[in-house]
Design a protein around this nucleic acid. Sequence first.
DNA 1: GCATATTTGTCCGTATGTATA
DNA 2: CTATACATACGGACAAATATG
Lengths: 236, 236
Amino acid sequence: MGPVAAANGSDGWIEALGAERTALGRASTAARVADVLRTHVTEGLLAPGTRLSEEDICAALGVSRNTLREAFRLLTHERLLVHEFNRGVFVRKLSVDDVRDLYRFRRIVECGAIARAGGHGLDDVRAAVEAGEVAADEGRWADVGTANMRFHQAIAALAGSARIDESMQHVLAELRLVFHVMAAPQTFHQPYLADNRLILELLESGDLAGAERTLAGYLDVAEAQLADAYDVGARG
Amino acid sequence: MGPVAAANGSDGWIEALGAERTALGRASTAARVADVLRTHVTEGLLAPGTRLSEEDICAALGVSRNTLREAFRLLTHERLLVHEFNRGVFVRKLSVDDVRDLYRFRRIVECGAIARAGGHGLDDVRAAVEAGEVAADEGRWADVGTANMRFHQAIAALAGSARIDESMQHVLAELRLVFHVMAAPQTFHQPYLADNRLILELLESGDLAGAERTLAGYLDVAEAQLADAYDVGARG
DNA sequence: GCATATTTGTCCGTATGTATA
DNA sequence: CTATACATACGGACAAATATG
């Protein structure tokens, strides 16, 4: 374990990667490597701006450079990593402008999905709302966060478009990077549970315009809250 | 030039690729290779379903397999190619369902962009409309098509979101694959020029709701026209 | 169903170019 | 300006999967 860890001054995340080596079972090697890295990035174990050295990670995960670069491609496309030519790949660092851009995207996609919602797909929305409420009752704040993600993914899915679904998935993955700048990311989502239920009820009653209005306001508030966190905090 | 051409029964597109070898100037090799392939695919020179042999293309472009595979990855992410494990990469073949999905996406994104349009960005819309009209007057149908693409890209850009812009770009590139199933792709876009101008004028007069309604109807008609072409033609 | 040839998946070593201390 | 570190790109190798006869 020594040499790699000692040489790179990485705060130990390289070793954590190496520990996942055994988990690399089957399926495309690159996809598995991408899974491992994706987890580390979205969980906040790799700080934004960190450079990912090809050599070190190859050694830690026991894969070749070509395979690793394939994994880098996947995550770069998901905007979790950025690739600077002749310099390497880095963990994505989102700016306030990125946050505003993400919410512009969400307003269009989520509100558009509601406006064109048919009757189907509401089950997934309801399931996400209830899962969030149960998790909050039991104090499982991390699960509240994932339930909230599921809620918005389900809202976008009302559009009935695979491409919309995929875009939304990527946007939400990016947002996970943003949440780590919050002082208390655990409880960030809790206040929005009531809005989620209200939107669900408006949808079920057929009041699409009301649901859309509520969601738009919701997104405005969340965006402002995150932008404030940037001003106070890391000045990203 | 003989052996490669003679052996692969490729209708000559491999040689056409080879002709672009000199154009490979600077910037990442993989990105340049991707550019060449992207052009060939979107121009319809490579029929959907065609398998892209690593060996042949490496020889034609004079790049290594690793580099070519990197280019393949880029284009796969753009959905222009599909990668089947242990079988190779193929030019994407879109189904009727794909067409419907693409138009669902466009309805949400383009109409949403109009609904949230500020005053800025209309210059690009106007430029695209006028370029299309001039090209049509002069019978340059290919340019009419590209001007039409520019128009819709400019509409999406009214949202003021880089992520929306990029998503729209990919969707329009995919749509180019669809246009080739039309009997007369050259004149496909011509009838829509009048709609483009109408939408521009509604936007300039501040009638966002009217512009959105017109565009939505436009997209419905175009989708139906393409779906019909699929029924009659290649049964994709 | 089997044996063969082809093609892809993965990895390695190395030479060259680029950025940074 | 020099030196070092690193990414880029190439070519070759072998295993594994697929296609072909």
